[in-house]
Design a protein around this nucleic acid. Structure first.
Length: 423
RNA sequence: AGAGAGAUGGCAGAGUGGUCGAUUGCGGCGGUCUUGAAAACCGUUGACUGUUAAAGGUCCGGGGGUUCGAAUCCCUCUCUCUCUGCCA
């Protein structure tokens, strides 16, 4: 959530930022917001005055009762009725105004960082880095959905039987390479100074709100209605919400956490022609890194996280590129996002395998995640990134490393797998 | 799942209708003392809102109610603990 004070003090910058995110009716929204706030403050002031009178009167009555001046107390009591009626009305007005304010505020996305490229669609994202040789596969190279059948390592039909589409069953070396990647990613994060977390994978409404999934993306999460809990779409939600409603001490900072979890996404309405095999799933595994930083350090932390993800892909010897997302393609809550895409050589497609973002104070404001600086509380900045999401990495490994003898396992994973070929 | 107890400031823990935003202890911060530290002593120490600064207002798990006045009484929801049951 944006900070009301910021909006008021930086009206034009807010409008410009909203426009860069292709938010409709930026001016009207900001004007409406400021209008409601003005009204709200007036009402609040009026209510405060009425309450102050009531409080004073109540104390007076207390004093009179103690002194045994019953008659005078009764007179004073009579005066309170009108104040009470007044404050009741004011309270209701205030509630309505606060609600209106909230309704507008939650529809407003985070503002993009100054460096965010202009643009509306994924095509306008800026390719800022590309590395690794694109493998030259023979004509008869197979896409990963054929390879997994050939080597019998992932079974979609079985998943379909047990659960439904998008819930694959990993078998044999397929299951083992998954476990190997998880351990590799976690070890790399530990070496980079992240603390390991194993969070719950069901979250409540407050947590969903804190990181911005609710109320906006309610339909994208699986909802366990009997207990009103949601399956996490990413470990970002529980790991960031650890710090909801807290004021961190200097000694707690910076917070650097990593966690492996399965992730669940309904992906309602996003199934199209090129969604095959591992390209898009309802359940997948991901290792996520989360940082909580002082505002002045957060962009340095973002770079650090980008470098970390680069390191992983380099070690896996996969070709990849980094996109600086344009304003229109960034998520609702993000101020700056870098997407990592790995090249899957048989499909001849770039597949997103990581998204690294700085949310600045947007999530922190919802989370009430603060720290103290010179006695004053201030919002912190939250960041997160996938490091990495497994299925598309696996797809790229399978496709890029296919040989007549089988699939070659990247060297760095061999000790984790216990084998160097899938054949 | 059944029975009982409980939820108060960073933690522990008082407070059952009236100057209680809350006694006290620990912790934290500042100071005195000390070469330095510890101990001791003195002071200070919740959040949100509001104002140029004040004043003022709100918050004792959440929501609602009674009352001139609620941490304290009533209703309701949630959660925690203990015992019994069940169970990886």
């Amino acid at each position: 959530m944006l900070q009301l004070n910021y909006i008021k003090e930086n009206k034009q910058a807010t409008i410009d930022g909203l426009k860069r995110k292709y938010f409709k009716n930026a001016e009207e929204t900001v004007e409406t917001l400021i209008g409601i706030d003005q009204k709200r403050r007036e009402t609040q002031a009026e209510l405060d005055g009425t309450l102050a009178k009531s409080n004073a009167l109540a104390k007076e009555i207390g004093g009179l009762m103690k002194e045994g001046k019953k008659a005078e107390a009764e007179t004073a009591k009579a005066q309170t009725a009108e104040l009470k009626a007044q404050s009741k009305v004011l309270e209701e007005n205030l509630k309505t105004l606060e609600n209106d304010l909230y309704e507008v505020l939650v529809t407003m996305p985070n503002l993009p960082h100054a460096s965010v490229p202009e643009g509306r669609t994924p095509e306008e994202n800026v390719n800022i880095f590309e590395t690794g040789a694109i493998p030259n596969l023979p004509e008869n190279a197979l896409p990963h959905w054929e390879l997994i059948k050939q080597y019998n390592i992932i079974d979609f039909d079985l998943g379909n039987k047990i659960t439904g589409a998008g819930f694959p069953v990993y078998k044999g070396k397929g299951a083992r390479i998954q476990r190997a990647m998880i351990n590799f990613f976690l070890d790399e994060a530990l070496a980079a100074g992240y603390g390991e977390i194993q969070p719950p994978i069901l979250i409540n409404k407050d947590s969903g709100f804190g990181t911005g999934q609710l109320p906006d993306k309610e339909g994208q999460m699986y909802h366990a209605t009997a207990d009103d809990l949601y399956l996490i779409p990413t470990a970002e939600v529980p790991i960031t919400n650890i710090y909801r409603d807290s004021i961190l001490a200097d000694s707690d900072l910076p917070v650097k956490n990593v966690g492996y979890t399965p992730c669940f996404r309904r992906e309602a309405g996003s199934w199209g022609a090129h969604v095959r095999g591992l390209n898009r799933l309802h359940q997948f595994d991901k290792v996520e890194i989360v940082q909580i930083r002082k505002p002045e350090e957060s962009y340095q932390a973002l770079n650090e996280m980008v470098e970390h993800v680069k390191g992983l892909l380099n070690k896996l010897e996969l070709p990849y590129r980094i996109l600086h997302l344009c304003g229109g393609d960034m998520s609702f809550t993000s101020a700056l996002t870098f997407d990592f895409e790995v090249y899957s050589a048989a499909q001849k497609r770039w597949l997103e395998c990581s998204s690294v973002s700085n949310f600045e104070a947007y999530q922190a404001n919802r989370l009430k995640l603060r720290y103290k600086v010179e006695g004053k509380t201030q919002l912190l900045h939250t960041l997160n990134g996938s490091a990495l999401a497994l299925p598309r990495i696996l797809a790229a490994i399978l496709e890029n490393n296919q040989t007549p003898e089988g699939i070659r396992i990247p060297k760095v994973l061999v000790p984790y797998c216990g084998f160097d070929m899938i054949s």
